[in-house]
Write a protein that binds this DNA or RNA. Structure first.
Length: 437
RNA sequence: GGCGCGGUGGCCGAGUGGCUAGGCAGAGGCCUGCAAAGCCUCGUACAGCAGUUCGAUUCUGCUCCGCGCCUCCA
């Protein structure tokens, strides 16, 4: 198994299985409902975790929830009536769990919050100060970038070439970043620390949580491509400066783009994960979204549009039908083709093409097994009794060669969201899911 | 200005120094009561310009275009 790592800029081999693999993924900041883009890393890393387990690795996936942040303060204050930021964070954390639960991929093995990691955060900051890598200034604590020689190695930014920054009044160097921020007016949460009341900066929570739950050295760190700089650069600097090896492989998923005029005008309607996951005909449903994510390699950007989602929907329906039809062949030795595709940088578009090949050859068992890896076993469904009854009536009509009645019954079946395919070995029912435009 | 990632047929999207990706959409045919599936056939794909090579979409260089990041966005 090998994966492309941003740090090395090349494919990096994982230790042979069985082995322990720790994965840390940056989760969302909970100030509003998450959108489809936020779901991409969630899906990719759950798939990866499940695949590595399948490959006999002992995997621990940690994905944090950032529940202390400027945006949360701002959003909570702008609510009418304003609410406590802690309440907003709790509410949005619950929504986040609900929304991602509906993806049907299981949950990370741990989902720590900044709030519950405060002890470790403070301890780590103290350690950095003791080591000369950080300094206190009027209740704030800043990381001393100059003290870490490899700063910039992840993003390949040359510190002196970076865009000019407004030097913070308390910073020794404009590139220094906050580890701890003294409480300011309007912030309704704070914690005691050796430097007074305050709250952690953004980057430190991830370093502290990763060390707490995965140890000083672990295999994979993931997140969106937009986090490479500064967030991950800073995490790496802090953790290494604190004497930890930190993550070996850095995976950054490509971003989701919204294209097309019509789409961007109705952003509000289809952008949130909640909306997209609504079952058809209102939304696209989880299976279409998962297939959509499969169509692009995890490192590539992906365009979210009616066209691309419709294409994914058509694929979902093709799989649904194939899973209902009779098995025509069962080339079990071909399973390794799928393994190879996924072991080589988790190439889901290639894996998808193999699944389509099995679909068209009628290799139903293999297809089902393959789809199950991605949480798509639900593409196989049993018809509800009332639909089966319609089909039985239709069979009778067909036997009597009353084709007008048979076609009428087919329309009833379709109204119920199902489709009837007449094959040489009888009629099969399969669920056709279509979003209404 | 700096760093990085890309440009493949109508659309999405793998891959390879010479030999078929796959999906969606389209045209014709076989099959079918009708459909669906399946099968057959069809449409001059690899941004541009040089270079390396017997041969480049695949390697090298340059150009053009797109995207991301440059202190709190997954």
């Amino acid at each position: 198994m090998r994966l492309y790592s941003t740090l090395q800029r090349e494919l990096v081999e994982l230790p042979p299985s069985p082995a322990k693999i720790g994965i840390y993924v940056c989760g969302p900041t909970v100030y509003q409902r998450i959108h489809v883009g936020n779901a991409r890393p969630y899906v990719i890393f759950l798939w990866l975790r499940n695949w590595l387990k399948h490959r006999q690795y002992e995997v621990k996936l940690v994905s944090n929830i950032t529940d202390v942040n400027d945006k949360i303060y701002v959003e909570a204050a702008h609510r009418s009536p304003p609410i406590e930021s802690r309440k907003l964070a709790e509410e949005m954390s619950d929504r986040y769990r609900e929304d991602t639960d509906r993806l049907g991929l299981g949950r990370p093995d741990a989902e720590p919050t900044a709030t519950e990691t405060m002890g470790e955060i403070v301890a780590m900051i103290a350690e950095l100060i003791a080591g000369g890598h950080a300094y206190e200034a009027q209740g704030d604590v800043y990381f001393r970038v100059e003290s870490y020689g490899d700063y910039g190695q992840l993003s390949r930014q040359k510190p002196d070439q970076m865009e000019d920054q407004e030097p913070g009044p308390l910073k020794e160097d404009p590139r220094d970043f906050a580890l701890w921020k003294a409480t300011k007016q309007g912030e309704d949460t704070s914690w005691e620390s050796p430097w007074g009341k305050g709250r952690p900066g953004w980057h430190i929570e991830c370093s502290a949580m990763a060390a707490k739950l995965l140890g000083p050295s672990f295999e994979i760190h993931g997140g969106g491509l937009d986090l490479v700089f500064p967030h991950h650069e800073n995490e790496l600097a802090q953790s290494r400066a604190a004497g930890q090896e930190f993550a070996h492989i850095w995976m950054h998923n490509g971003l989701l783009r919204l294209t097309g005029e019509k789409m961007s005008k109705s952003l509000g309607n289809i952008q949130t994960l909640e909306q997209v996951l609504k079952p058809p005909p209102e939304g696209w449903g989880r299976e279409t979204l998962l297939l959509f994510f499969m169509t692009a390699h995890w490192r590539s950007p992906i365009d979210f549009s009616i066209e691309t989602m419709d294409a994914a929907q058509a694929q979902a329906n093709a799989f649904r039908e194939a899973l209902a039809l009779d098995e025509r062949e069962n080339p079990t030795e071909e399973w390794s083709r799928l393994e190879q595709a996924l072991d080589d940088d988790f190439n889901t578009p290639l894996a998808l093409s193999i699944l389509h090949e099995w679909r068209s050859r009628g290799a139903r068992s293999l297809l089902f097994q393959g789809l199950s890896l991605f949480g798509l076993n639900t593409l196989k469904e049993e018809a509800r009794p009332e639909v089966v009854k319609l089909q039985e009536e239709r069979d009778t009509a067909r036997k009597q060669r009353d084709f007008q009645r048979a076609d009428e019954l087919r329309r009833h079946i379709e109204k119920a969201g199902w489709s009837a395919s007449d094959t040489s070995s009888g009629t099969v029912l399969w669920p056709k899911h279509e979003r209404k435009h």
